[in-house]
Amino acid sequence: MSSKLHRLCLFLAVTGTVIFPATSSSSSGNLPEFREAPAFRNGRECPKTTWSSSVDKNSHNPSIIHIAMTLDTTYLRGSIAGVFSVLQHASCPENIVFHFIATQRRTELRRVITTTFPYLSFHLYHFDVNVVKGKISYSIRRALDQPLNYARIYLADLLPTGVRRIIYFDSDLIVVDDVAKLWNINLGKHVLGAPEYCHANFTNYFTPRFWSNSVFATTLFKGRKPCYFNTGVMVIDLGKWREGRYTEKLEQWMRIQKRYRIYELGSLPPFLLVFAGNVEGVEHRWNQHGLGGDNLEGLCRDLHPGPVSLLHWSGKGKPWLRLDSRKPCPLDSLWAPYDLFRHSSLFSDS
């Protein structure tokens, strides 16, 4: 085990919770049951503030942090762990508002959130799958083709206009730092901020048909240096997004994809086509991604070099599934302390 991993394990061990694997409920039956999270309260230094979806469209309160996540039966256990991790490490947890997006079973999902996090400020929105019906092209992994995977494209339409900035988080990550540090980054003139990875081979994210088309390959990225970024962690200026009509720009590439088949990775490539080379770079510590392995086999991976503020199990392998199968990867032990899944008698808080 690397020294960095060892230090992280020791750090997370102070939670005092030992989790043993058990099989959660199926997506077609009852939703999983979760233990109630402790109440996380603001310190004296935190400004007292409230937020309502009915606020004036021009108002903006920088003391309130808005986070968007999707909720569905398949990834619910990951979403709950992600929320728990954010609250546990936040300096002002009561100033965080979560915006959850779901396509179905909203009443049940609302009950799960309310009973697991009784003190949480949150709103639950319905995402109409008909919005993307006919626009989604099949990819190399079925999970990437689900309509909810495309909800991040429509955040500016789903959320109230009073929400001017949002952090978008995938449902397979945990935060081990104060999320306010990510919230307060300066986007400058950019619409979107995310960790960039300019060493990645950008050509791999598109098909030969894309690169053989001179209009796509030559004209599109003229004047900008495109770098890969992972769309599971993004800070978005929704005001600039709405003004620039970026949802329409992303949808246009989805229509082109249906006709020309220029990529194979779900909702990621449209973001690269629209934003790559025009992103405010964020420290890599805020997305230690790829911990779920690749999209086909999901083999174990180690941490990237450098400090860690967020661990992201992007890829095929998910920590809760590997823990349940009793075949976990070493890094899955870092996710386990945030798993609130009710394991009946198979857990101990001692």
Rank of each mutant, 00 (worst) to 15 (best):
R35C: 14
F40D: 02
L31C: 04
N30A: 02
A68Q: 05
R41V: 12
E33M: 02
A68C: 13
K57L: 09
A22H: 08
V18E: 15
I67V: 15
L31D: 02
S52G: 06
G43F: 02
A13M: 03
F40R: 02
F20C: 04
I19A: 03
H60Q: 02
I65T: 13
N61F: 05
C46V: 09
E33W: 02
G29K: 03
I67G: 00
P47M: 07
E45Y: 12
P47E: 04
P47T: 08
T17F: 00
S27R: 10
R35E: 14
N30E: 06
N61K: 10
W51C: 01
F20Q: 11
A37L: 00
P47Y: 07
L12V: 11
G16Q: 11
H60W: 14
P47G: 12
L10W: 11
S59M: 08
F34Y: 03
I64D: 00
R41K: 11
I65Y: 05
P38W: 03
S25M: 06
R41F: 12
S25D: 10
I19M: 05
S25C: 06
M69I: 10
P38T: 05
S52D: 14
C46G: 05
L31H: 01
H66Q: 07
R7H: 15
S24R: 15
T50V: 09
T50Q: 04
I19F: 11
T49L: 11
R35D: 06
T17K: 03
L10T: 13
T17P: 00
T15L: 14
F34R: 00
T49N: 08
G29M: 05
S54N: 14
P32A: 00
S54R: 08
S53A: 12
P21W: 02
H66S: 12
H66E: 02
T17N: 07
T49A: 15
E36A: 04
N30K: 01
E36C: 13
V14I: 09
I64A: 00
C9K: 15
V18H: 14
S59K: 09
T17E: 08
W51V: 01
P32T: 01
K57H: 09
P38A: 09
T17V: 05
H60F: 15
S53H: 13
S24H: 04
L12W: 03
P32K: 03
I64W: 03
S63N: 11
R7E: 15
G16C: 08
P32S: 01
K48W: 04
S54D: 14
P47R: 15
I65V: 15
V18P: 00
F20M: 08
H66Y: 07
S52P: 07
